[in-house]
Write a protein that binds this DNA or RNA. Structure first.
Lengths: 190, 190
DNA sequence: TCAATGTTGAACATCATGTTCGAGTATCGT
DNA sequence: ACGATACTCGAACATGATGTTCAACATTGA
């Protein structure tokens, strides 16, 4: 890929995130991003359809980053009953505080929310598929991804009032009994 | 309150919901609502700041409706371990299918999502306060409201693939073990 | 009936979006 | 190092939504 293309996209993504932090996603015009990135208007539209499209490509980077950390952890077989996978997620958020604050905060708008929930959903879906549950995997994954997302957003918006491991432990406490219950091979739902 | 005011507001709310169903919340202009409601432009702005403000007042109606049903249920003391409070919520959504479809569906935009989560959060917060939990009530309420919202949205968007009682039962299965665990008076979180 | 209050529509300023195009400029393969 | 290629620029433009204003008109409630 052409160096100029890489450069342009990078500048636009950086400008976007910086501006989200300052002014919030919703109250942000394409022109603002252009000015900050010092990129021509027409150039923007040769790369992205709109603000949302730009944000998505940025999110792809975050997604890959997080996935990488999860995969890295997967090789070191974690003992069951540990908070590892959750820990990795909350850790990731904590280490990238600045960015998460910008993007999750009230400022962040809904762009992030949807993408993040989809990501969590996928992770959980895989995880639950191998486990197998008593009720439709879709539902369980939807349920837990919503729960995690919501907790994560709260945590970030409150400016990380607990250390990540502790948050992970709390979620674990709320989550695993339900998973256990839905795992036990028992009669169908009434 | 003046009859004309009531009439105007009502027409605007009705037009809004009808149009959400047809075109989706985001792709909807104030002018569209005006045309449908047959209300003058300047009139709109004497009542509402913008589209979101109009939507909020509509949501207030829905909220009161739901709250009413929950209160009505509360007097008939439900036996513990039943799906009642959840059942009422899913029932409410099912009976008002058309509206929920419009407002939760992909069409609905995020306006509904936030308001609904806040509502669920409040309900759960009250509920958990009397119960008392081992971990911060805020967190538990955030966690469960996210989980419920997510499940509800999924259910509506899939066009109600299960009967409401069944959905309630599934949520109950996923929820109550976690609540139980967080209720037992046990050592603090590590 | 009448004073108060609500509604109207058209005009207006403002602002963001997304497209176009010719001229300039950096990049990559050779 | 060179030239074809691909990228960038900026200014201009059409479009369309927003929110405000005002004077004339209509409905209400007492």
């Amino acid at each position: 890929m052409d160096r100029r293309v890489r450069r342009t996209r990078r500048m636009l993504q950086d400008a976007l995130v910086a501006l989200i932090e300052e002014r919030g996603y919703e109250r942000l015009t394409v022109q603002d991003v252009l000015d900050r990135a010092d990129v021509g208007r027409s150039t923007f539209y040769t790369h992205f359809r709109d603000k949302d499209a730009l944000f998505m490509t940025w999110f792809d980077g975050l997604r890959e980053d997080l996935r990488g950390e999860l995969d890295a952890m997967a090789v070191g077989h974690q003992p069951p009953g540990t908070t590892r996978p959750l820990g990795v997620i909350f850790d990731h958020a904590y280490r990238n505080r600045r960015v998460y604050r910008a993007v999750c905060g009230r400022q962040g708008g809904n762009a992030f929310t949807h993408l993040m929930q989809r990501l969590l959903f996928e992770l959980l879906h895989e995880h639950l598929c191998v486990a197998g549950t008593r009720l439709p995997v879709e539902i369980a994954a939807e349920y837990y991804s919503g729960a995690l997302l919501s907790t994560l957003l709260w945590w970030v918006r409150q400016d990380f009032p607990y250390p990540p491991e502790e948050l992970a432990a709390m979620c674990q406490l709320l989550t695993s009994p339900g998973v256990m219950a839905s795992l036990t091979p028992a009669p169908h739902i009434p």
